[in-house]
Design a binder for these strands. Sequence first.
DNA 1: AAAAGTCCTGCGGGATACCGCAGGAGGTAT
DNA 2: ATACCTCCTGCGGTATCCCGCAGGACTTTT
Lengths: 250, 250
Amino acid sequence: MSTHCEIETLLIVEDDALHREFLRKTLQESDLQIGQILEASDGEQGTRLSQDYRPDAAILDLQVPKKTGVDIAKTIWNRRAHTPIMFWSNYSDEAYVRGITRVAPPKANYGYLLKTTAKDRLERAIIGIFRDGQNIIDREISGIKQRSENKFSALSDKEYEILVDIALGLTDGGIAARRGISVRSVQARLQNLYAKLGICEVPKLKDGVGAYNRRNRAVAVALMSRQLNGKTLEMAEKELHHHLNLEDDT
Amino acid sequence: MSTHCEIETLLIVEDDALHREFLRKTLQESDLQIGQILEASDGEQGTRLSQDYRPDAAILDLQVPKKTGVDIAKTIWNRRAHTPIMFWSNYSDEAYVRGITRVAPPKANYGYLLKTTAKDRLERAIIGIFRDGQNIIDREISGIKQRSENKFSALSDKEYEILVDIALGLTDGGIAARRGISVRSVQARLQNLYAKLGICEVPKLKDGVGAYNRRNRAVAVALMSRQLNGKTLEMAEKELHHHLNLEDDT
DNA sequence: AAAAGTCCTGCGGGATACCGCAGGAGGTAT
DNA sequence: ATACCTCCTGCGGTATCCCGCAGGACTTTT
């Protein structure tokens, strides 16, 4: 029952019962040889099962109650960095993919698929990730980049970092304190970001006043292109409180 | 087949095949008497069916390809304002509920449920909306308001409006031009908004500089509390281009 | 070696955000 | 009638955003 299985234990964390059942059936109908399939409907249960049973592979819904799929992945990868993990989600936001790449170990084996993926494509992707060790990112997400004419796909980690800083509402001084650079350097980095996002030139109103302010406009553009969302901001906010010595006056 | 039905024609618009099937079964197993159930898997098909068949009721997924559930609802309500519509979604964002209330006719009969709703509760909600004419908003969404300690739930439409304006990146001058008020009035409204969001007092850094700028901070707070998201910004951006005479220089 | 590229940083200056103060207009309550 | 409330708006002043200019440090390329 076990010595001939490609995957001895596979963990599914998915709160939607229909989707959970669909995944189990898809796995059972595939030609992957799996010993046992564990199922969890929320993040805490998922984390507990992953600690108790040490799965050889996992399929994690990004958004589950009580703990995110990324958190669970971190737990799994902390134990065994090579564990293949497939994330699946309703969300094609690049923001979420960045969330994963930030915690993924070097050379991690993972995939990111949308729940809208057709069953046969899903099956092939699962085999690609778990048997062939491929990293597969759903084409829909890549499609977002292309739609944006490569303007946004070229945001470096440092550029994305300062985007998040302004999205949290930090002043130039606040960012400078956080990053240990000068205020003028903050501004230099922002100029770079604005150029990347194509918002250096701002339309003028009839009386010559600019219609947009670049700081807010950069965040708006990133939100609309799904590089930022409320969830990633929450996570950034948590990190912020570790890094910044604020006189607590809120 | 028809003269004894409570609902002669009911339209389902839902792109996820599993969810679509689940809805159909739930309806057939309920004690609602329904003549025919039409199904659409995207927004265009949904709009076409609603125009061709004039459904007496509808269940609309908020996020479907090609056209939003809100757009379809608008089409339906433009024809017959009393049509009961149940929206269902993965999203508990207050931003989406606001999107619906903005297009709903006075005295419209609608509901908003989450896809995580248990089947028996879903069934009861469907009957409540379609037979009893109730308006039912999922408790999870109300729960968000409570979690935020009533700070955000008290945002008036006008306050929300100017929140969206700054989230789009408009300058004070830009908002003044858009709303036909003075720049100082824009600032007065913003002061009100900042007070409502609890961000008038901003923590200071060690050198006495503020840590946050209020404009960006307000947007961050709203994003994190799900009163704003990328989708609602996109819709607002579209409207903006109707209202603002910008020298097109982007 | 010199040249080029990248990033950092101080300086100065204009544009915009933010806000207290004060007065006015319109509406409601007593 | 007066008093109160809400919102609008001009004025003046401070804080912050934004950016050109220029020089320096470090790395890479020729």
